[in-house]
Each structure stands twice: as C-alpha cells, then as structure tokens.
C-alpha cells in the first residue's frame, strides 16, 4: 500500500524481500545500506536472534530522489525465512507494493525455494493479493558457490511467468541494485496506472 502525501510531497512504497532461510535477504539489505549515501537512508533495523537470524524483520528506509517534485521513498523489509516464523511472514506482507523473491542457487536448496515460493503465494492470497498481479522480481543468489543449479533450471522451476530475474552474489553486491531497481521501477509504473 503506497502512501502519497500531497502536503509533504512524498511517495512512500513498501518492498518485501522474501525467500527461504539463509538465502541472503538480510545480506541484500546490508549491501544496499552500505552503498547508499547517509542522507538517503535511515537506520537499518534488524530484529534478529543472538545468532543474527532474522526474528521478525529487517527494515531499511531509502530516499531515492525526486519525481516531479515528490520525494520518492522505499521501505525495504525482509521476512524471517525459517518455517516456524510463518505467522510473522504474513504480517510483514501487509500493505506490500512489490516483492523480491531471493532464491538460493545451491542445488540442495531447490526444495526450500519451491516451498518458500508456495508459502509466498498462499500468504499473499490471504491478504487479498495475487503474486501474478504484483510488481515482482526474482534474484538467483549465491551464484559464487560451486554447487549451484543452472539458471535455466531455476527459471523453469521458479519462474514460469518469466518475470525479470537477476543473478546475484549478495555478499559482494552483484545483482543487488539491479534487483532493487527493477522492482522499484515496476512499483512506480504500477502506481502510474492508478493515479
């Protein structure tokens, strides 16, 4: 749900990074945080366990710049990936404007990817959203590892509609901004249709 404020001339949108546990969602946000100018970003808030696993969400507010005199802000969230945090994942999807699905490219994580994607669809549907109608980008992360599935295989497994997808290595930042930029663009184009 975007928030368009004519008084303060701001547009606020919410993007959620979804995906199985340890696929690199938090790492994506950390890289974005590291690489943006101080005046463009707020604090990166991580509600995490002592072992740095996401407990509730990570949150990073980003001010990108202006469009027609309106300040454009994106609020980036990640969900906790582990299966038992299902209830929290649902909450974070509330009011989402765009989704990034971060897939773990390691062969042994394919099932976890599929499961997480099913979970995403179901949770969105519960809020009255349809994944196929939302701005949506996929990132095939951890391409730097040796035990990865070919991108074509991942595409046919996880991306039947052929939405925009990017190969990534979130620890070094490969594909991180490409992914964000793509989904942000889709969100703004979607807003343009309505207003």
């Amino acid at each position: 749900m975007s928030f368009i404020n004519y008084s303060s001339r701001e547009i606020n949108c919410k993007i959620v990074y979804y995906g199985p546990g340890l696929c690199g969602k938090t790492t994506n946000l950390q890289f974005v945080y590291k690489k943006t100018n101080p005046e463009q970003k707020g604090k990166l808030i991580s509600l995490a366990t002592e072992t740095e696993r996401t407990l509730f969400f990570d949150f990073l507010p980003l001010a990108l710049g202006d469009i027609k005199g309106f300040k454009v802000r994106f609020h980036l969230y990640t969900v906790p990936g582990q299966v038992f945090y299902a209830a929290s994942r649902k909450l974070i999807l509330k009011g989402v404007d765009g989704v990034v699905f971060v897939a773990d490219s390691q062969i042994e994580r394919m099932e976890a990817n599929i499961e997480s994607l099913d979970d995403l669809r179901i949770n969105l549907a519960e809020q009255g959203y349809e994944l196929d109608k939302l701005p949506y980008t996929i990132q095939y992360n951890k391409r730097d590892l040796s035990n990865v599935a070919p991108v074509e295989n991942m595409n046919s497994l996880l991306n039947p509609r052929n939405v925009p997808s990017f190969e990534g290595c979130a620890v070094t930042g490969v594909g991180v901004f490409e992914t964000l930029k793509n989904v942000a663009k889709q969100v703004l184009i979607e807003l343009k249709k309505h207003y």
Binding site: I11, L64, I67, K68, K185, L188, I189, L191, Y195
Partner: peptide, 17 residues
Amino acid sequence: DSPFAEISDEDIDNLFK
C-alpha cells in the same frame, strides 16, 4: 496535479543515479 501524470522511464531511471 498527480506526480505520476507525466512520469517517464527516464524519471524513474534518474532515481537510481
């Protein structure tokens, strides 16, 4: 006075400069 009325691809690209 919609900010989206005449928004172009270029405007959006410029956000990420």
